[in-house]
Structure formats: structure tokens, C-alpha cells
Design a protein around this nucleic acid. Structure first.
Lengths: 198, 198
DNA sequence: ACAATTTGATACGATATCGTATCAAATATA
DNA sequence: TATATTTGATACGATATCGTATCAAATTGT
């Protein structure tokens, strides 16, 4: 329903404000969530005025949606540039796992996950979009590496959730695991799935 | 810092109000989260007056904390009454998994998980308490069934996260898996962990 | 250089929140 | 029965929110 008739064509100044609003609001939303951040606060921190937010994004929810979409797409970009053609099954899984976890354990991503889950009832479509470009994408990359074996898709989900879930839960409650603990789990999970019929 | 000097000794009426407030507020918080529910609304739906909330719980946050503690402890109670002494490793895991997922896939639990994760930055200790009586408890039961094998604790976490994570993610975005899909995952995970050196 | 559009600063209305305070009604206690 | 305590209903102050409206300043295009 976003009606673009009222959208001004952006100046250089307007474009700068557009990006600045997104940048500032991103940090505020990540730090405190959607509800706890007011538009007035975003504008105080950004400069300019609310005019921009309402003309360019339609309002607070539109701004939030734009921010979530940008963030979600960024976290997993390193995963697509790996070349695993010479790696063994176990080694390849371990490399995938480490690359993935290096991204997901960043405080920004932890904050993002908290933010998106907290509003998943209010914005289910945003959560769905996150899932597609987040967990689902990771699982696809893993499944592609596993090849065409039966149940490859399910095994990819298993591997993903084995190495990701508990670490993120701990991080969410301010008790992130050490990196060596993360690596230990990746090794164990890789070994588990590398075995013949697995 | 909850100072109990101002807490009245509860009447029969007072006790009834105490429980009624918790019951009403529980449903409201589950439905819409901590921030979106106002105390005035809780009282409108409960009857009585805000006097009770402030004298008995200290305020909105105290009420929320009490509610989270009660809910968290309830979800997994069925898990402790299972007798798996005659079950094979694979069958026992499957039974544990099904019992667990029957609880976790309930809409009330999905709402609870969304609620607790959304406020995990504001109330990290509440999230920690949830983790202890939730995932950690489940993992303990699973580990106990697996016995004293090396890495049993880690395998229990793996099994738990393999069957739980993806289903809950889908449920959170309003796309809960069918029960037969849940069972298929439980079977696959049980088989995976039932193999000799697993 | 001048007119049209976009952006900035600010004020406003309507509404809502939390926590406290007041005083009347109901209940418990002596 | 008389007194003390708890509960109910309500009002209040301070503060905050969103979305809109107004009008001046800056920038763009002709």
C-alpha cells in the first residue's frame, strides 16, 4: 500500500538525509528495539526533521522495514564467496560452520536477532524475509555443499541448528560462548555429519 | 531491591486479586508483549485497581517477572515423568523428542518464546532463568537418557536443537510445520544420534 | 535571476503511559 | 462492636508518543 505519489525526488541533500536517517535509526533500533525508540529521537540524532521520515518512508514502520531488509541481507554475504571444491566433507562443513558463526556471533547480529524476534508478531512478513535471506540461505549453501544425497536439505538444517542455536541463545542472554567453544561444537557437528550414511 | 515492608498480608479477596491479575496479565503479555500492554489495561481487564499491582508486585516489571517465572516452569513438566528404562536408544530419543515438541509447539509457548526474546536485553536475568528451566532442563533430561558417554551433554544439545530450532522459527513467523513434518525430523535426528559412535 | 520544489524547524492535537495520591468501601482484628 | 488494615475507584502530574500542519530556508530547474 505504499503510495509513492507523495515521495519527493531526492536532492543530494535529501539522499544524504535518507542514508543518514537509516544509519542512525539502525543503531538505535538495534540497541533498544522497535517500540523503545521514538521517531523524535531518531530525528534528534539525525538532524533534519520528521518531514523526511514521513515523506520518504511513510512513517516509523516503513523506516523499520527498510532497515530490517538491509540488515538481513548483509550478514551472510561472506558465505557465498567460499570455494570448497577441494575440501573433504568434514573439512568443508567445518569451514562453512566457522564462516557462518563468525558472522552470527557479532554483537550486531545478536541484537538484530533479538530485534526481529521481538516484533515477529507485529511484522510476520519481515521475520519471514529475515528467515529467507538468513537461516534458509545458510541452509541452502550447506545443502549445496553436501550434494545430492537423500535428505541433504534436512541434514543441512540439522547442521545449521546444531552449531547456531545454543550459541545464539547464550549470546542473547549476555553469556556468549568463547570462540574456542564455538569451534569445538563446529568440529563435533562436522564429524557427526561426515560419517558415511549421514 | 524489592522491599517487602509495604506488602500487605493478603486477604482472601487480596489473594483472589493476586491470582486474577497474574492470569489476566499473562494472557495480555503473551498476546502482545511487555511494551504493548499497559498497566491500566491489565487493571481494566482484571477489576480492582492499580493499588494492587504496585503493592503486591512493585510495578509493571515486577508483575512481568513473576509471570515469566511461572510460565517458564510450566512448559516442560511432562518431560520429567517419562519412564524410558526399557526403550532402545533410538526409540527413547524419539519419545523424548515427541514429548518435548508437543509442549514447545503449543501457541502459548510460541508466544512465550517471542515475548521473552523480545525483552532479553531489558531483562537478561529473566531470559537466563527461562534458559535454565527450558532448554537447559530439556538437554539435561536428554543427556541423562544418553548415559555417561563422552560428549553426552553436547550430543543432547545437538539433538535438542536439531528438532526444536527450525520448527520454532517457522512457528514464530506464523508458518508452523505440520505435526507429521515434526515427527519426520524427530525420527531423522533420533536415527542420526542412535548410530554407534554417535 | 526567478519560480517551483524539497527540506528544516517547530508547534500542535489527540492520545497514552507510569507511578502516586486521595478518600471511600470492604474486611480483618481486638 | 469498635478499631485497624487492606482494597477500590478515581484523579492527577509529569512525560511521551505519533502523525499532521505551518511557514521559513535551501536547493533545483528553467
Amino acid at each position: 500500500m505504499s503510495d509513492r505519489r507523495d515521495m519527493p525526488r531526492l536532492n543530494a541533500r535529501g539522499l544524504a538525509r535518507h542514508e543518514m536517517i537509516i544509519k542512525t535509526a539502525t543503531e538505535l533500533f538495534l540497541a533498544r528495539g522497535f517500540d523503545a525508540v521514538s521517531l523524535d529521537e531518531v530525528i534528534r540524532a539525525t538532524g533534519g526533521s520528521k518531514t523526511n521520515v514521513y515523506k520518504q518512508f511513510g512513517g516509523k514502520e516503513g523506516l523499520f522495514a527498510e532497515i530490517v531488509r538491509r540488515l538481513a541481507a548483509d550478514f551472510l554475504s561472506p558465505l557465498t564467496t567460499l570455494d570448497l571444491r577441494t575440501a573433504s566433507r568434514e573439512t568443508g562443513l567445518a569451514i562453512l560452520g566457522r564462516t557462518l558463526m563468525q558472522q552470527l556471533m557479532q554483537p550486531r547480529h545478536i541484537a538484530f536477532q533479538r530485534m526481529i524476534m521481538g516484533v515477529s508478531d507485529k511484522f510476520p512478513e519481515l521475520m519471514a524475509e529475515w528467515y529467507r535471506v538468513g537461516p534458509q540461505k545458510s541452509q541452502s549453501v550447506i545443502a549445496a555443499f553436501l550434494g545430492d544425497e537423500p535428505d541433504g536439505k534436512r541434514l543441512a538444517i540439522f547442521f545449521h541448528d546444531m552449531i547456531v542455536t545454543d550459541a545464539i541463545n547464550h549470546a542473547l542472554m549476555g553469556d556468549a560462548p568463547t570462540w574456542s567453544e564455538v569451534e569445538a561444537r563446529i568440529s563435533a557437528a562436522s564429524a557427526l555429519l561426515a560419517r558415511p550414511s549421514g
